[in-house]
Nucleic acid binder design. Sequence first.
RNA 1: GGGUGAUUAGCUCAGUUGGCUAGAGCACCUCGUUUACACCGAGGGGGUCGGGGGUUCGAAUCCCUCAUCACCCACCA
Length: 842
Amino acid sequence: MALDTVYEPQKHEAAIYRLWEENNLFAPTEKGEPFSIVLPLPNANASLHIGHTLMFAIQDVMARYYRMQGRSVLWVPGADHAGFETQVVYEKQLAKEGKSRFDFSREELFEQIWDFVAKNKEVFASQFRELGASLDWDHFTFSLDKKVVDSSYKMFKKMWDEQYIYRGERLVNYCTVHRTGFADIEVLHEDRTSPLYYLKYGPFELATTRPETIYGDTAVAVHPDDERYKKLVNTVVTIEGPSGPFEVRVVADEMVDRTFGTGVVKITPAHDFNDYEVAGRHNLPHVRVINHDGTMNHLAKEFEGLTVAKARAAVAKKLDEKGLLVKVDEAYKNRVGTCYKCGSVIEPMLLDQWFIDMQKLAAPAIRALKAKKITFYPAAKADQVLAYLESIKDWNISRQIAWGIPIPAFQNVADSDDWIFNTEVDKEELVIDGKTYRRDPDVFDTWFSSSQWPFVTLDYPDSDDFKKFYPNSVMETGQDILYQWVARMICVGTYMTGEIPFKNVYLHGMVRSEDGRKMSKSLGNVINPKEVLEAYGADAIRMGIIAGRSAGYSAAYAPGKIIAGRNFCNKLWNIARYVQSQENTASGEVTPDSIADNWIVSRLSFAQKEISLLIEGFRFSEAYEVLYHFIWNEVADWYIEASKGSINTPLLGYILDKSLELAHPFAPFVTELIWQQRHTGSFLISKQTEPVISFSKEKAQAFDRLQVIVIEVRAITSALGISKVALEYSDSTLISENEVLLKQLAKLGSINQKTEKKGVSLATSSENCWLAIDDSVTKKYITKLEERIKSAHQNVTQLEGRLSNKSYVDHAPEAVVAQTRNNLQSEQKILETLQKELASFV
RNA sequence: GGGUGAUUAGCUCAGUUGGCUAGAGCACCUCGUUUACACCGAGGGGGUCGGGGGUUCGAAUCCCUCAUCACCCACCA
């Protein structure tokens, strides 16, 4: 069968994936040490982005590598309902139709989003396949699957019973546009310029960025040691406000910074996190003046119905009119919490929510981390997680949205403190013992379900899968969700199963745009992986995205590396074409014979060991480099070229097969495709790696020495612009025994044994040999020769300097010194030869 | 305000415990159609490893310091 000269991935990739899938080759094997990894579940609301490519490439390299090492590999695919995220995407669609989520009941909305997501799940599952991901599709889990919901309910119940969960009215980060609360970690803090208003406030003057919340003030705070205000502490003072006088208590609290403004703070417990805490310490009432939609309520008197921003300006104006506004610092800079989806200001809002006591939940996780039970790549991330968990605050898990897992809790309509656990969430009301209970309309934070991923996907607690594959071998994910996901999985996994959820965490950085900036739709610098995939193929994009990346670091998307990947596939393809064209004739035993044979087997042996070490050490980019170099520079450039002189067909076939094997984790499609042409009825994906055949070290080293001759001949002939030169030598068995090989590799005209030197000596080889070049041509060589002498001279001087340093000889390890001596000796010999050469010309 | 990281060739980046003359891909220059491959082959140019100081026989690598740029965390009204 004649193969195209250029490899076209588009023609073959889909068929190869189908072949794997139809033969059920992604499923874990019965035997073998388990290796398990769960895919960080992509959001079910969007298609693939370039970051996914990196994630898939790394994880698939591991899955395929360990599968070929005989491990029983389970790689679990999934999709996240991504509650809030997805609802926002869907709301945008509704907006295009002129509708809003508030036009529907939560049940109606849930149904609609369900249909919307079902379509998307199909789309991205097909995209995983296009990248060659060897995921076990039978284990596919969607975060709203029954088993995830059941597990979430079980966990909620356990936490409730064991008092890890409490319900309470707390100040919560709230987006008034999306009308839901968030966890602290979801809030984006932005630098903003906000006017700082200096107000006359009863007997005080104070600075505030929020004059509109004055209607919710229930105290004014000063520092306990502040002499200026000491007399007023614990008194009740009358404040003239925008709509008339009101009374507040003066409290002393350490929180107040005496140097800021006037050292006086108005306390609005219902709308500020600091003030809320002050109120807790001093037993102050909470007065809510802002509605959930971000407008002022009736307590704001004539400002009722205005948005916060409008009310702020209006109240300030009113205060000014009443002579209560002292001054305004327009250039005041502060940090403001914003909604990461719409950018609107997060309003601290008093809400009844479910919270997890994180100090309690994190304690076992902290112990596990301190005991170094989980290894992080990069290692420094372990300390970051630890620091995060040690200062963690309680986790608000209630979300006021439709798209998510309904919270299985019902409240007694007659007694607001009476809550019961019940999973009949399809009912709005339950009547139990004559008492009526109404369902909590909220849903869980998405991360509440996804934090269970390592065990819920394995059907914890009784399944064979769980027993075999938990804890997971590796958690590979983006460093951007270290806290949101990785930290929570460690907490939740340890809490539920009593064991850490995974042994290793490998974090990849972000794929930035070509200019090094963040990729974002608004900047218009997003790379669409689908286009790259279509242009270069999956193998190319996988290798290109892995190349030159190390754990935890973000790096720019580099198209040159994708092209290199594409070229590498073509190289493999053409190596195969060549080998197969030679194989038509003979078959026989695979044994290294010539020095080239032994050399390539020694290089193969080195590459196989090195690649293993690097992959197992999570150094994927370096493993890829070793592979690339072995196949391109050693197999193709040296061994195949050598084979054109004298060929060992069975060994050549073996080298090709082993190359395919080593490359398969990185370039699964092209390697399997070639494999299928060579070995019908067997699959490279499930081939088990065996040790490399044995070879003669002496012969391999002889080839090294032959290479030295070849390299110098090429350099001299290239510099002089001549070809087909005759090589002459005396007393060299290396040359006499390998004339054919040498002639082929160095493109020599002939090789002859002579007794007398006439021509240009080869300086770097220890063999006595020279190129028989005419005197008229050698003249041109003088300049080159002088350059070489200069550089050799520099090397000799440097090495002599090092060796004449007594401290170096005394202190450096013997091997290092010996190496230096060797280098000096060979450099001296080169210098000597070159100088003699020059002398003979002049 | 704290913390972490980065700065290596024109570009994008590697470089495990300090140790051969600091590497790769892309780009660049010269030559080349030879039994796979021009998505190619051979040869070549290009770096005082951000600046300064220190430790050491020896520093891209360890320490200090400065500069620039990222990112993360935090309750400054």
